[in-house]
Simulated assay, not measured.
Amino acid sequence: MTAVLPSTGNAFVEALLRSPTFLPQLATLSVPVLALIVAFGGLLVMRRRRAGTRPLARLHRETEGVALAADLVLVMAPFMVLVMVLLQTMWMMRETVLVHYAAYTAARSARAHACPPLPENGQVFLLERLGRLGCTNDWNRAETAARYSLISASPAWGIPCQGACRIPEQVLSAISGPTGVSAQLPALLDQARYAFDSDNVRLDVGFDPKYLLIGARRGSVPPIRARVTFRHYVLYGLGPAIGTRRPDGYFYRESEAEVTLL
């Protein structure tokens, strides 16, 4: 029989909290953001203190404004690096949630098509073999569900495909019309090209080995575990420092999301 799935909202939050990869990744990505905030706050406090200690009698001799252009040139480069780091970090924090949601949708799809390892009886086993019960153990559908979820986590500026790409153009065109985003269809197709690139996404889905005893009961479906490995796009300026270079010159950084659907 087809498994009964829980509602999406609370079930996804519960799956995130149980995930062994979500909170550690989010904490790691939060470190540079917090460090930059603390550093910027410290510099601001020091500047205010220095400004407050200047005697009023010497204000007419201040010549700092003369070097404004030189200060701008010196500050511009580190400021741009700071902005790039913040943008990349915030982008990867957002994508961390999306990649875990992709793992959740993969596990949900696999659960919907999973057959019990031990059928209830011979009649149920025969019906399963004949495809009458709707369970097929088709993990390919789980991969497709994960890739659809990863479209939102993909760049929209025409990154070329490295592996096999089968973009669901008809499906996306049918979705973009009623939702009023037809003008954004080219960007959506670029994102789909990245998400459906075989080199950018890897999926490992199946019964969670920690719950194999549940599968030993007749008619019971053990919890499904899905692991999604996704290649996050890295800004070119930061690529050599934190990313891996592709043959075409673009950079990426891999992250893994693991979700178990009970």
Rank of each mutant, 00 (worst) to 15 (best):
M1N: 14
A3P: 01
V4E: 07
V4K: 13
L5C: 05
L5E: 07
S7C: 12
T8Y: 15
N10Y: 14
A11R: 07
F12H: 09
V13R: 09
V13S: 04
E14K: 09
L17H: 14
P20I: 11
T21K: 15
T21F: 14
Q25T: 13
L26V: 12
V31Y: 06
V33Q: 06
L34A: 14
A35V: 11
A35P: 00
L36Q: 04
A39D: 05
F40Y: 08
F40M: 06
L43E: 13
L44K: 15
V45A: 13
R47A: 06
R50A: 12
G52C: 02
R54Q: 04
L56I: 01
A57T: 03
E62V: 03
E62A: 14
E64M: 11
E64Q: 10
E64A: 11
E64T: 10
V66H: 04
A70W: 08
V75P: 02
M80G: 06
M80L: 12
V81F: 13
L82S: 09
L82Y: 13
L82F: 14
V83Y: 02
V85G: 02
L87W: 03
Q88M: 15
M90F: 09
W91T: 05
T96H: 01
V97Y: 11
L98R: 11
Y101M: 04
Y104M: 05
T105I: 00
R108G: 01
A110L: 11
R111P: 01
A112Q: 15
A112Y: 12
A114D: 01
P117N: 07
N121E: 12
Q123H: 02
V124K: 09
L127F: 09
R129Y: 00
G131R: 07
G131L: 02
T136V: 01
N137E: 03
D138K: 09
W139E: 02
T144S: 13
A146G: 08
S149R: 12
S149D: 10
L150Y: 08
I151T: 04
G163Y: 03
G163R: 06
P168M: 14
P168I: 13
E169T: 15
E169C: 07
Q170H: 10
A174I: 07
I175L: 14
T179L: 13
G180L: 01
G180K: 07
V181G: 01
V181E: 12
A183P: 11
Q184E: 12
Q184C: 04
L185V: 11
P186T: 15
L189Q: 08
D190I: 10
Q191G: 04
Q191P: 07
D197K: 03
S198H: 00
D199T: 07
N200V: 07
N200H: 06
G206Y: 02
G206P: 00
F207W: 09
P209Q: 05
K210T: 11
Y211I: 03
G215I: 14
G215V: 08
G219L: 04
R225Q: 13
R225H: 09
R225M: 10
V228P: 11
V228C: 04
R231G: 09
H232R: 06
V234G: 00
L235S: 00
G237F: 09
G239R: 00
G239F: 00
G243D: 04
G243C: 08
R245F: 00
R246V: 05
P247W: 01
E254C: 08
E254T: 15
E254I: 15
S255H: 03
A257S: 02
E258L: 10
T260R: 12
L262R: 03
